[in-house]
Design a protein around this nucleic acid. Structure first.
Lengths: 199, 199, 199, 199
DNA sequence: GATGAATGAGCTTTCATTCAT
DNA sequence: CATGAATGAAAGCTCATTCAT
């Protein structure tokens, strides 16, 4: 009986998940707007109406996908050992974030796509990084007060971190031969670090 | 008679330009896909069919707009005095590019939007910068051979330049109080420079 | 055990009644066609499929509701004392019918709605009144043969009675200050009576 | 040239009119809600999208139809000669209104259908009569002040007029043999007149 | 060139109904 | 009896594009 119940729940979860999977696939392939809900349902192998049984509308599906990916990313990036030097803590975050991006190229690109959606407020773009790395602003403030990091406006520094992160993952995803080389990954971090370190 | 002819030609050019202007406006406001051609025509104050007299289809309109903006940007960024030191030449380019972006926020954002369009190949994103700044790769190569810049893969460096450019203009457009401060603009360049300068 | 069985039967009757109640509520609020079965079930606090356990389909639910209301109305209108003068008998029916309509505004409006449904034959409209007041045609015929009522076609007179009944209840429901005044109720009857009485 | 221009205008008016005609036909046959826009377009012999070129949405089509019929009815009912006695003036209005209803049974029934639509405020029902017969309230007030009509609330009298009008046209439309007899038409008016005349 | 009515494929969403549990 | 996930036909509506004028 619990078996049955489990099967049922799993079945419905399966269809919902199939829909999310299909949506992710199609969204990054042709864009969110350009992807018809009917195509998502068809790709997921469910009926047209099933999509709207699980999600109130297309927008809700997008948001559910967004949320699930953000949570997955946040869980994948473990907080660094706070006893380490600042630079090491940042390297930990950097590598974890890059690693997640490289391991989940589609999910990463979906986040990137949403971040550039003109219908979202531009300032929300940082949310992507901030949600995944709530520690980052604190570490930067700490670095500045300790005299390790240059005393520039936080917004400027965060902006650069965010942008360097996005572009690095994109580049490495597109040119995997660079990603294989650990030195290259380190270099990308160094460009960021030396850019914001006090001289 | 030639008067008439002139009026006519000017009229048609006017309508074409009105269409481009309206399209730019609407594209950055609601996205390219989400903007109906009928709405562009209406905003431009011309008839529905007129749009398709001047542009074969919607895609052609997008491309014409893209081209015109790229050309305008390229013209606005004058080449630096090649006798200046490398750093000064880069500062010149940087400031000219940023300035153009801040002076034409809508056109800049349209380029940014296209660069993130999933239907375009990802690698084409660099085209934006490269077309506007054909000099940049040369200067970087020169800086590396002179030992001024770190010896990292060109792709990595260009990628960083591109991304720092995009995000800086976006940030300054959104928070104009930062853009007013020249030190801030300089700081943004410094983050880039110290990131890639040989230590 | 019989206890359980009773509970069960009562439960199912409860749910069936909840469905009828919810349907009545929603039907008069938004119309029959515009009311989704899912909404009825939700309002009734039962599962989607439960509705189709108790009623073969939506149409059957509508008809069950129709029938139950017609029966309730017929029971509420007691036959007049046949020894009274004709006018008094008619007043009795008139007041009982109006009273029922005012006391059950939702049920009354549902009947009114169905009576105007184009998918029902128009002539069926009289059915509402005739079913509730099977006595009316007899009384009218009697009045005519006694020379109290004008000698007009029955159809015309019945039609007028029906329509005056519907519109009076609607008016009084909408403007309750009129319904409070017993003279007003009497006036409405008088307009009907003097309209058809022999002069 | 004016020929061409006329053709064009007439053509587009034709399609718009075809849509209105088809809509009227289908609305009274199966109800407004139950009539699909696609069916209207098909019946009118135009493409699906053409309907939405002429009317913003289905509701707008309904309202346009409503308006055009109300105007047509208002124009058909000429005001009576004000020098005639009150009763004659009312007879004039009565006959004109009934006549229009009998000559345009579909249009009449559409008005009747809208008047009973639960989504419209109930009090708006009188609007049908009032718009067509703006003179009626004045004449009734005049009749009351002259002591010809009984001194009952206007709402009650108007309500009765409205209802008698609707039911008479409906009955005569359904049983044309009654409508042929002018005495019958007169009788229907008499029922109304003697109902509200002062005794 | 310019117009705008017309098109019809395609979109998102709704909904009565079914059925395995 | 009761559930609610699943279905797919059909709804209202949008939109890029065409074409006669």
């Amino acid at each position: 009986m619990s078996q049955h119940s489990d099967d049922k729940r799993q079945m419905s979860q399966t269809k919902k998940q199939q829909l999310l999977d299909a949506a992710l696939h199609l969204f990054i392939e042709q864009g969110i707007q350009a992807t018809a809900t009917a195509k998502i349902a068809k790709t997921a192998g469910v009926a047209n109406g099933t999509l709207f049984h699980h999600f109130a509308n297309k927008q809700a599906l997008v948001e559910a996908l967004h949320l699930s990916i953000k949570e997955e990313m946040a869980q994948a990036i473990t907080p660094p050992d706070s006893s380490l030097p600042l630079r090491e803590q940042l390297i930990h975050l950097w590598q974890a974030a890059i690693q997640w991006g490289l391991s989940h190229p589609q999910k990463f690109q979906f986040l990137r796509q949403l971040a550039n959606d003109p219908q979202y407020p531009l300032s929300q773009q940082h949310a992507m990084l901030s949600l995944a790395l709530p520690l980052l602003p604190q570490l930067i403030a700490q670095g500045q007060s300790e005299g390790i990091l240059a005393d520039w406006p936080q917004a400027l520094i965060l902006n650069t971190c965010h942008c360097q992160f996005l572009s690095t993952v994109s580049l490495f995803t597109e040119q995997p031969e660079l990603a294989i080389d650990p030195a290259c990954l380190q270099t990308a971090f160094d460009m960021l670090w030396y850019g914001m370190a006090r001289r």
